[in-house]
Design a protein around this nucleic acid. Structure first.
Length: 635
RNA sequence: GCCAAUAUAGCUCAGCUGGUAGAGCAACGGUUUCGUAAACCGUAGGCCAGGGGUUCGAGUCCCCUUAUUGGCUCCA
């Protein structure tokens, strides 16, 4: 007999060799039905897995992340099986589960069509009905390679060859389909009750653009039909808050064929932009930053000196002035260097925090452009902090606090990544190690969780990135803090130390919004277009019942404007319901409805976007209310 | 840049296997002066993304270009 400790801490005796599934069945039939996999001492395993010694066991259902992974992994096998039945000539590459479903990559000369997806789905339905059991088995390395060679599965051979010498090479079989796979999997194909293939895409083998492009099919699957419907519904809802759609409907910005990746900001979009910038300026002054503005075009020699010519050229635009070669800035730092060098600094002047809202241009691949999130020109809310080595940690902590303060203001959740030295980098490994440990130290002092992104740093230094989520869960890098020992060296920056000698300062590059454009895109999706009053392009719209109230409205509107409240009037000869509908579609925080009654009593009828009809109010009371709300910035 | 899909009026979309472009909303003109999410009638609006081809005839078929979308790669 063996002792099995369950999730709730209780332990039970079972005969040696009992399977995970049998334990689940012993606990309850319901749990057995919901079970998709198990977790033995932290390792996820199949339900068929026998247990031979005392362990801690968790029964995983679809509600567990690892359970979902197993479920989706099996779904990807079902899809691959269907594809192989319909298109026997295809080669299998890889088919993992992902955060929201699964995919499988196939190699075939014949491109899949949307009709193929339907046929594949139909075949998958059959496989699910066949309720094929999944069976795990292992093979010695050479045998595994031979067996894959026999099937012509060259990608699988490559995968096996890359496995470490001592690793167990396991396969899963369901009916006639066999795939190299570490597992775990659900016990039979019949469990995958509801699924949908979502999209077709090209994907490079092993994510390397030098490799062949394979065809990837994405899908999702659930144990119940209702869950699938709910998921698809959520996707539909998310599409409604897409910033590209709302940007058009709310008249905030547009992008035209004449300037792919170069967004135009409309008057209402500019209101949001200007408010963000005002807020930004105020907070930066408070924290000891000074603001500068450097030119967009600077001569090519500067970019050679900064290292951009060697490391960033393919992302830059170039131009020519009077036979001289110039570049359009892709970053603000070299301009900031020039300003630092304009005079001498004492160690007492440092740290020096120099901020710049700088418009940069970068050549992004056409296929990468995406609304305001990925553009070819954007404004960075940049700053360069020049400092002594002993300032490093405090300055980084200061920036982390600033970023956190900003993101909290908008109610964002974010996650942090630390990126290390890339292949194409300047500087010695020692410098990089020093810089990386400084960043780590700051993160640890703030008790921040972070993931490490190996080789993803900027060419001049490692960075801490702050990532925000869009409406469908994709994350976008916004804030970043980059520690740089290289630029000060390249530009021979100095300060005079207490010893009277020249010393080299260290610098930080950092942004908080990241790109104002991207940040606005994320804000639009975050609020689904319903901006809090302090950010709303129009805060109040007056709606007339009849034209008898026009004069009163115009008088009030002028008063509100004088108080700095952003107002619009709708005096059209339309029914009130129609005007309310339009104002609601524009997500305007307050509608003030003015008819004969209001003119008579010199009051206003207030309708709030969030709370509905608030009834009659004194004008003064409403002004107090909205002013307070604006001051609180939606907190 | 690569793979795939898409491109019809300001917006959302019809237009079947080729026979000469249509709706709703918006705009404009009129009627209606109305109380909390869409009044009524009328008018105008399109080089069907651009270019080339096949055909007696192309929005529909083919090719090229551009842009967009979903991915891959890259990144704020």
């Amino acid at each position: 007999m063996i002792n099995i400790t369950l999730k709730d801490g209780t332990s039970k005796q079972y005969p040696k060799g009992i399977t995970v599934g049998e334990v689940a069945k012993d606990i309850s039939r319901g749990l057995f039905r919901a079970a998709v996999a198990g977790k033995l001492d932290g390792e996820t395993v199949d339900l068929m897995q026998p247990i031979n010694n005392d362990v801690q066991l968790n029964i995983l259902t679809f509600d567990d992340i690892e359970g979902k992974k197993a479920f989706w992994h099996t779904s990807s096998h079902i899809m691959a099986q269907a594809v192989q039945r319909l298109f026997p000539d295809i080669k299998l590459a890889i088919g993992p589960s992902i955060d929201n479903g699964f995919y499988y990559d196939f190699d075939t000369d014949r491109p899949f069509t949307p009709e193929d997806l339907e046929a594949i789905e139909a075949e998958m339905t059959k496989i699910v009905k066949e309720d094929l059991e999944l069976e795990r088995f292992e093979m010695p390395r050479q045998e595994a390679i031979d067996s894959m060679a026999e099937k012509g599965e060259s990608y699988k051979i490559e995968l096996i060859e890359d496995l470490p010498e001592d690793s167990v090479i396991s396969f899963y079989r369901q009916g006639e389909f066999v795939d190299l796979c570490a597992g775990p999997h659900v016990s039979s194909t019949g469990k995958v009750k509801a699924f949908k293939l979502l999209s077709l895409a090209g994907a490079y083998w092993r994510g390397d653009e030098k490799n062949k492009m394979l065809q990837r099919i994405y899908g999702v699957a659930f144990p119940k039909k209702g869950q699938l419907d709910e998921y698809l519904n959520r996707l539909e809802e998310a599409k409604k808050r897409d910033h590209r759609k709302l940007g058009r409907e709310l008249d905030l910005f547009s992008i035209h064929e004449e300037g792919p990746g170069f967004p135009f900001f409309h008057p209402k979009g500019m209101v949001i932009r200007n408010i963000l910038e005002d807020f930004w300026r105020k907070e930066h002054v408070k924290r000891g930053y000074e603001e500068i503005k450097t030119p967009i075009i600077l001569n090519q020699d500067l970019w050679v000196r900064s290292g951009h010519w060697d490391h960033y050229q393919e992302n830059m635009y170039f131009t020519n002035i009077d036979d001289g070669d110039y570049a359009i800035k892709p970053m603000n730092c070299p301009g900031s260097m020039i300003l630092y060098k304009r005079k001498m600094y004492s160690y007492r002047d440092l740290p020096l925090r120099i901020a710049e809202l700088g418009l940069v241009h970068r050549h992004e691949l056409s296929g990468a452009l995406h609304g305001l999130m990925r553009v070819r020109c954007f404004t960075q809310d940049d700053a360069h902090i020049f400092m002594l080595p002993e300032h490093i940690k405090d300055e980084i902590v200061g920036v982390i606090d600033l970023v956190d303060y900003f993101y909290k203001q908008f109610g964002f959740n974010y996650h942090v990544e630390l990126s290390t030295k890339p292949e194409k980098a300047m500087g010695s490994d020692e410098d990089w190690d020093l810089a990386i440990s400084a960043l780590k130290e700051a993160l640890e002092e703030k008790n921040m969780e972070y993931i490490i992104n190996e080789g993803d740093g900027a060419f001049y230094g490692p960075k801490i990135d702050f990532h925000l989520e869009d409406s469908i869960g994709r994350t976008w890098q916004c804030g970043t803090i980059q520690l740089d020992f290289q630029m000060p060296e390249r530009f021979d920056l100095t300060y005079i130390g207490a010893d009277g000698d020249k010393h080299r300062p260290v610098m930080i590059h950092r942004v908080v919004f990241g790109s104002i454009e991207r940040f606005i895109g994320i804000l639009i999706e975050h609020y689904a277009g319903a901006f809090p009053t302090w950010l709303a392009p129009v805060q109040v719209r007056f709606l007339s019942i009849t034209d008898r109230s026009n004069q009163y409205i115009q008088k009030l509107a002028r008063e509100f404007e004088d108080l700095g409240i952003r107002v619009e009037t709708d005096l059209r000869n339309e029914k009130i319901g129609y005007k309310i509908r339009e104002a609601r579609l524009q997500r305007i925080p307050y509608m003030l409805i003015i008819g004969d009654k209001e003119v008579e009593s010199q009051q206003i009828a207030v309708r709030s976007r969030d709370e509905g009809d608030l009834g009659l109010m004194e004008v003064e009371d409403f002004i107090d209310r909205i002013k307070k709300e604006i001051k609180q910035k939606g907190q």
